[in-house]
């Protein structure tokens, strides 16, 4: 291994937490191997110099107006150029929507094996990773043996290193190749006040069919806010029109791995479980002791959510003073 290239992802000028996690893992893998960790920062007017404190030896910037938001063709061209200029033999990204899309394109361009959505990683002659299959019902070990190895890492599974302010990185500008694209972005509808992406959240409070009415989700948002998290939804709640599709967790929604996951008025169907079985701690509130989630949740309360949730909010406020 000579260099690990970490392609970072920014949102509203801030690095996203999953990218810091990947940087931390790259640092741990590089330690003792003599490999350098290069953080690639793609964007317009982004200052990536702070990434040294999170494990980067070198920060490589690709700065251009056209790179302000994700265009797969531009970003791929830049990333391939970076891999080549740094002689990187390992390329890591967070398994976000952008990460999965971009990594697939780079893999095809460089004829490199890609291990996607990894839960743990070891880099030696081969890149060996554990990754979920069959919606988390099995964990596969995969080995990538190509000359250049690529992996995307599942958010919330790897620890951030630092910040260690005593460490700094050399900042270099990447010589930009010509940027051409086969597609044009006509419009981007993501407001800066948009809520945190569920895949990044530490705490998620999910409501299901038992919530009865969209107005009742305010209560879940309050609980989520108190704990620094966000609200989520089952497919039943999304299909009823109570919550946007972007809130859906599960087989046909998002896959999340938060520290704490609340299931409020949700039964815990196998398809929902597929998206959240990796949560570290699961709490259920359900009036039905026979709901499947009651056998699986770490902690559960049997009762009416309309009484229990307000009491939970009060209790947490109380202990928080």
């Amino acid at each position: 291994m000579s260099a690990i290239l970490v392609i970072t992802e920014y949102k509203n000028g801030e690095i996203r937490k999953p990218s810091l996690e990947v940087l931390g893992e790259a640092r741990r893998a590089a330690n003792g191997s003599g490999a350098k960790v290069v953080a690639l920062v793609i964007g317009s007017g982004i200052d990536g110099s702070g990434l040294g404190a999170y494990g980067a030896d070198v920060v490589l910037t690709a700065d251009h107006d056209a790179l302000a938001s994700y265009n797969p063709d531009f970003y791929k061209t830049v990333a391939v150029q970076a891999v080549k200029s740094q002689n990187a033999d390992v390329e890591l990204m967070a398994a976000t929507d952008m990460g999965k899309d971009l990594a697939s394109r780079i893999a095809a361009k460089l004829d490199a094996g890609l291990a996607s959505d990894c839960l743990s990683l070891e880099i030696g002659d081969a890149l060996t990773a554990k990754r979920p299959m069959y919606a988390g019902k099995a964990i596969a070990t995969v080995a990538v043996k190509s000359a250049i190895k690529i992996a995307t890492l599942r958010p919330n599974m790897f620890a951030v290193e630092g910040p260690d302010e005593s460490k700094s990185a050399a900042v270099e500008a990447l010589e930009l190749p010509e940027l051409t694209s086969k597609q044009t972005v006509k419009e981007v509808r993501s407001s800066s006040d948009a809520k945190m992406d569920l895949t990044e959240a530490d705490v998620i409070v999910t409501g299901g069919r038992g919530m009865k009415d969209p107005a009742n989700f305010v209560m879940l948002e309050e609980l989520a806010d108190l704990l620094g998290g966000v609200s989520g939804a089952t497919r039943a709640a999304v299909d009823a029109g109570w919550c946007p599709q972007s809130d859906q967790v599960g087989q046909t929604g998002k896959t999340v791995s938060p520290n704490l996951y609340f299931m409020i008025g949700a039964s815990g169907s196998i398809q929902h479980w597929a998206g959240m079985s990796n949560a570290k701690c699961i709490v259920a509130v359900n009036k039905d002791t026979a709901a499947p989630i009651m056998e699986k949740a770490d902690y559960s309360i049997v009762g009416d959510l309309f009484e229990v949730v307000p009491a939970m909010i009060e209790e947490i406020k109380k202990i928080r003073g």
Binding site: A115, P132, M133, K137, Y299
Partner: peptide, 21 residues
């Protein structure tokens, strides 16, 4: 370029505790 070299079940979750009613 990528091979599955092993497969296992996910780690068992801890015990499910019904805290109360």
């Amino acid at each position: 370029q990528l091979e599955v070299t092993g497969m296992e079940y996910p780690p068992a979750r801890g015990k499910a505790t019904v805290v109360g009613e």
